[in-house]
Design a protein around this nucleic acid. Sequence first.
DNA 1: GCTGCCATGTAAACCGTTACATGATTGG
DNA 2: CCAATCATGTAACGGTTTACATGGCAGC
Lengths: 188, 188
Amino acid sequence: MSLRIALLGLLDATGPASGYDLAKSFERSLNHVWQAGHTQIYPELVKMAADGLVAVESEGARGRKLYAITPEGASQLRSWLVEREPSSATRSEVALQAFLLPLLDRESAIAVVERIRARFAERLAVLECKPKDTPGFGRYALRLGLTQGHAGLAWADETLAELRGLEPAPAELSGPASAAVDDAVGRD
Amino acid sequence: MSLRIALLGLLDATGPASGYDLAKSFERSLNHVWQAGHTQIYPELVKMAADGLVAVESEGARGRKLYAITPEGASQLRSWLVEREPSSATRSEVALQAFLLPLLDRESAIAVVERIRARFAERLAVLECKPKDTPGFGRYALRLGLTQGHAGLAWADETLAELRGLEPAPAELSGPASAAVDDAVGRD
DNA sequence: GCTGCCATGTAAACCGTTACATGATTGG
DNA sequence: CCAATCATGTAACGGTTTACATGGCAGC
């Protein structure tokens, strides 16, 4: 469903576009929020056209089809935005690595957190060179990304400080099922 | 792949468990990081057993099978943690709604942001009643979740302040393809 | 004419969710 | 005995990724 919404949003904001254009727009402006490649976009546009949410406005050179949002599409887009209770489920490999950190010895854990930190920094760098105050599209999401990126960095720094502050040879490595671990994972 | 890792991580940390136990552990301790229901877990355990990552240690009452991690499984778990460059791709309905906010008039946008804010607050409330300083599993991920949750709240508050500060009847609503919007979405 | 990019698509495999189905055990 | 919970699974569907396939056009 959300792929449709993202496509409708782009079409609504930027006007008619081809599948190829939309794939580029995903890379350019939407990639920190939602991802989709052309292999997903082309068939989805066909289905959306069948459902009357978009229409082929014109066919250009080399088979290029320009899709435009229909009134029906614009209406569904707005309904979704206003009515949809967003699922807050996140599935993050970074968070999973953070979760599993206690399985590693201190050295490895530090290396892993450093790598995570680099990821957050990279992400932030990308976002920071976008026009922050353009009064338009993606502006709020950009700020959200920046805020969360900074939060990630702060977490990494705090965690690194803590890990580095531990005595050089702690007992926190491998070891299966201790009562303490069982407790931490157990009922809350 | 990550589902396997999550299961291996839980088995490594808490010792042998059944599919049912693991599903409960997901709900309890992993849900802010990764989600999986029993319908995904049971078949995956079978495949993992076929691949030698886990082994059925014993069969209890009413068909209950206890899976234990094998040395091979433990080794793959650690390799993944140390070697895997985590994909930082996130797919978030919340961020998508944030992205599309400029399509709405001021009133509706405020309502949407208020709903998002409530989501963040809800999430934070859940995390905050977990034992924050237990020296164990999930501890780092918990802190990451808290940090990012606070960041989300801060974003929502800032955004609400800005939206409420606008004059009551701004011109920011619907309207298709203006040059400015095109610019904001365009190349970076 | 060759190389590289534009532009469009299909197919298979994989991952995740929802709905369905079943039986055993525990507690009232 | 009945209801709730434990415990295990299958099936169908939909979304996502990866690999494959094709042809046009532009510049060298």
